[in-house]
Computed example of a mutant assay.
Amino acid sequence: MIAGAAVLGVVAGSCVGYVIQADREPTKLPSLSQPVLAQAKGPGPEPLSAAQDRRVKTEGDLRKLLLTKPTGTKEADWIGDGWLDIAAYANEFTDPGEKFTDLVGDEFRRSAVVGWEVGSSYNVEIRLVQYRQEDSMAALDSSLIHQGWAEEETATDSWSIPGTGDGMAYVHTRPDIEPGYLPQYTAEAHAWRGDVSMEVWIYGTKSITKKMIMDLAERQMERL
């Protein structure tokens, strides 16, 4: 009997609660709509000029972003019209077939090149390689791969290229020597900006200084 009375008490209390709640005025909910914000008056921001918009630069003639041949040097005869198509660029590597396949996967777009000869001592070649970059950061990847290859060589000095984040310059101090040929020294620099990777190469029969490779790399990156 006691247990039954307790249950009836709980039920009665619940019923009273429902009755009280039903007699109350419904609580108004906040409006789902938001107030309309007034639009700022006055002209919008000025669009970037062509000089400030890097995208405008790289969408034009890529060859115009390359350093120009210095006075007193001879233009390299292998340069042609300044463009390297995908096959010609792949041919610069030890395994052109494999590199060609990689470039297709990396969404290669185009490559521009300039080069010159400094007397009989040095040859300089600079390449700008552009990628579509719809699915990957191919310009960055290309730069890092080149850096990895450069760092694998023994007797190599390296320096960061100022203003590039992760760009690097290298001087290989031990020349390649083959019977019947003069010693061949090499220096290189690799960096990237946006969808363009930069490659700077110096080959010479004399040793190559840090100043030579760094000067070219810094000035070329400034043009990007």
Rank of each mutant, 00 (worst) to 15 (best):
W116H: 10
W116Q: 11
W116A: 10
E117L: 15
E117N: 13
G119L: 11
G119A: 12
S120H: 06
S120Q: 10
S120L: 07
S120F: 08
Y122K: 12
Y122A: 10
N123L: 10
N123E: 06
N123Y: 05
V124D: 03
I126P: 05
R127P: 00
L128S: 05
L128Y: 05
V129M: 05
V129G: 04
V129I: 12
V129T: 13
V129A: 05
Q130E: 15
Y131V: 10
Y131G: 07
R132L: 15
R132P: 00
R132N: 14
R132D: 15
R132K: 15
Q133K: 08
E134H: 11
E134C: 08
D135W: 12
D135F: 14
D135Y: 14
S136I: 06
M137C: 03
M137F: 02
M137S: 09
M137L: 11
A138D: 03
A138F: 06
L140W: 02
D141W: 00
D141H: 04
S142G: 03
S142D: 07
S142Y: 04
S143Q: 02
S143N: 01
S143W: 00
S143L: 01
L144I: 01
I145W: 08
I145C: 08
I145F: 03
I145R: 10
I145P: 02
H146P: 06
H146C: 07
H146Q: 10
G148A: 10
W149C: 12
A150H: 01
E152R: 13
E153F: 11
E153M: 14
T154Y: 13
T154N: 13
T154V: 11
A155K: 13
T156M: 13
D157L: 13
D157M: 12
S158G: 06
S158V: 06
S158L: 09
W159A: 04
S160H: 05
S160A: 07
S160I: 02
S160K: 12
S160P: 10
I161E: 01
P162E: 12
P162I: 12
G163L: 06
G163K: 11
G163E: 11
T164E: 00
T164S: 00
G165C: 01
G165L: 00
G165N: 00
D166W: 02
G167N: 00
G167H: 00
Y170A: 03
Y170W: 07
V171I: 15
H172L: 15
H172P: 07
T173Q: 14
T173I: 11
R174E: 15
R174Q: 14
R174D: 14
R174C: 08
P175N: 05
P175T: 03
P175M: 03
D176A: 13
I177H: 04
I177D: 07
E178Q: 13
E178A: 15
P179Q: 06
P179E: 12
P179D: 11
G180Q: 11
Y181K: 15
Y181L: 14
L182A: 15
P183G: 09
P183Q: 09
P183A: 09
Q184P: 01
Y185L: 09
T186Y: 11
T186C: 10
A187N: 14
A187F: 04
E188V: 09
E188H: 06
E188P: 01
H190M: 02
H190Q: 02
H190A: 01
A191L: 01
R193C: 02
G194D: 06
G194L: 02
G194H: 02
G194C: 02
V196L: 05
S197D: 00
S197N: 03
S197I: 01
